[in-house]
Design a protein around this nucleic acid. Structure first.
Lengths: 331, 331
DNA sequence: GGGTAAAATGTAAGCGTGTACATTTGTGTC
DNA sequence: GACACAAATGTACACGCTTACATTTTACCC
């Protein structure tokens, strides 16, 4: 086995140069003779040398670490979004530090631990933590909010969704086809994105002169969609159930099938997020989702910006991915 | 806004002590008067001070970082397993660095970047990277393999599954109920866990004096399960399809439903992994899975060990989670 | 109270880099 | 060949912390 953890000084000895030259060989556009650099890089490669990122971060005060604050990666919606973002970061030689908040009693403590690593950026993907707490804890990092919490004048970059047009498109089509009894199944009514989705839905219906009922007790899980739908469908007969996310929408669809309610003939179902499995043959849920890859692109762009520039707000438009959980347009 | 990034020396001035005392206040069981520590911790809290993990890591040569090498977090099987592991790490004040290999052309380059952060441990959750490459790149870290690749005498800790008993249990029941025509749908035949699953299956069938067919073209995705099942079921009528993972099993079930093949009456379907959605009402796939939480527990235990101890091998037994994709036992 | 040992704190030297500054080497000109 | 000037390299310190060692304070006992 080769030597463990060569340092720049040791490599310098081997190369017959000073450690400063080693450093220069690894720094782009620095003053060094091309042949020297080539020789050093070859030697480094041979010995498996890499500049110690800890030491480098320490005196450059920039770590190239990005803290990703999510609820859980077990959830397809978060997992799929996260995956794209991670790929974009990796392509830029940045490293994601993962913080999973769900099931963790003290989220602030978690953030405090991560902040000790002096991350350059923090992406708040989870609405389970407060922006103010995060800003307070990650003092010197650039905070980027992706959880749709209102900024209220805070000097923070954010990426938010706009599903108003897509929602109107769905509602209009359903109304056109004669649907009148709409229900919204909430995921967590305290969640900001949930509030927004409901409000877009509410606006779209209002424009059609219609009202709707709300079922509050969902929790974003398949099981809750299923359970709430069974309860609801036993006492009422809505035309349309719009769910705060796709997982609940799938639960609703299964509940309908249990109760012999035909989808989409008797009941149309709409989800949110556009997770891969909503598109599976057995589910085929019509869903309102951000344009493919747009969120992670926007986040990556913000991360690439000069940190001294003022924060930036980006809006990503949503589209409809039609499935068989809503009726087809007549030809 | 408060000062950005206080250092230990600055805090020392504020507290009227030396920086060494600050350090001791943050180090468990070190020689310091309890009142002094309390006073310093209170002051630190007030000013939002935390020891810089970079500096600390640099001279302790231990970072409390753990590199998690996975294919993708978009996949439920990896996402769910990862989530548990992340929680266990966080509970121990360790930070996960996430490396997603899928879609990344040069995995070794990715690992090299991560290795610059001097992670203490590397968990290989992905079989897309070579153990030898990982060991070579993460020279001074403790490598832990969770991808079922054979160790071949390498001095590496690993956690592997044993599904032999569970597989036998499934096969025996199906044979008892008269099933004779078994097919195995592979995910990626080069994958080690896939080979193992097929071999357990093969052994269980052999014990019953039966043979089976193999469909090689799966790729672990729902779509491939669906597609391969359609092709297969159009030309043959197996009793049982055992899939390399749950996603393909769900695809197979949907394909069966498309072709009006009744599950489980005409066709029994078995998956692997035990992902949450396999248990959903609409799917209800019988699956062979590790005992809940055992893998992440084993990994966390290995991570907690003294790094000077020799590597350790752990085997996690699998169980059967029965669903409605296999016939019920007659009463 | 003086002496001793234990407890608490201070001092200073690293940990492995990057970089400002000093120094050496190379190039071209008269 | 001496000179000026640019290119390339070396020197030394800082980044923020831990820790071995030195020093001071406290506690205790005769």
């Amino acid at each position: 086995m080769r030597s463990k953890g060569l340092t720049s000084v040791q490599l310098a000895k081997l190369a017959g140069v000073s450690s400063a030259t080693i450093s220069r060989a690894f720094t782009a556009d620095s003053l060094i003779k091309p042949e020297t650099r080539a020789r050093i890089l070859a030697l480094a490669d041979e010995h498996g040398y890499r500049p110690n990122a800890m030491a480098r971060s320490l005196n450059m005060s920039q770590s190239r670490l990005v803290a990703l604050v999510v609820n859980t990666v077990a959830n397809p919606a978060e997992g799929e979004g996260l995956d794209q973002l991670v790929h974009r970061l990796q392509a830029r030689e940045r490293m994601p530090l993962l913080l999973c908040c769900a099931n963790h009693e003290d989220r602030n403590q978690l953030m405090r631990i991560a902040s000790a690593y002096r991350v350059d950026h923090v992406v708040l993907y989870s609405d389970a933590v407060s922006i103010d707490d995060a800003a307070d804890i990650f003092r010197s990092a650039t905070l980027i909010v992706a959880s749709s919490e209102p900024l209220q004048g805070r000097a923070v970059s954010d990426v938010r969704l706009d599903a108003s047009a897509a929602t109107r498109q769905v509602v209009d089509r359903l109304v056109d086809m004669g649907r009148r009894h709409f229900v919204y199944l909430s995921g967590r009514s305290s969640s900001h994105i949930d509030k927004q989705r409901m409000s877009w839905f509410s606006d779209a219906l209002e424009a059609q002169g219609l009202a709707f009922d709300v079922v509050e007790h969902g929790d974003y899980s398949y099981e809750s969609g299923y359970k709430e739908a069974v309860l609801l469908l036993r006492r009422a007969r809505p035309d349309v159930i719009v769910c705060a996310n796709d997982l609940m929408a799938i639960g609703v669809k299964d509940a309908a099938s249990l109760l012999n309610i035909r989808v989409p003939e008797d009941l149309a179902i709409v989800g949110h997020d556009g997770v891969a499995l909503a598109n599976w043959e057995a589910h085929s849920i019509t869903t309102i989702m951000p344009l493919e890859g747009m969120v992670s692109t926007a986040l990556a762009e913000i991360i690439d910006r000069d940190p001294t520039e003022p924060p930036m707000q980006r809006v990503v438009d949503c589209v409809v991915r039609w499935g068989r959980s809503t009726p087809e347009l007549p030809r």
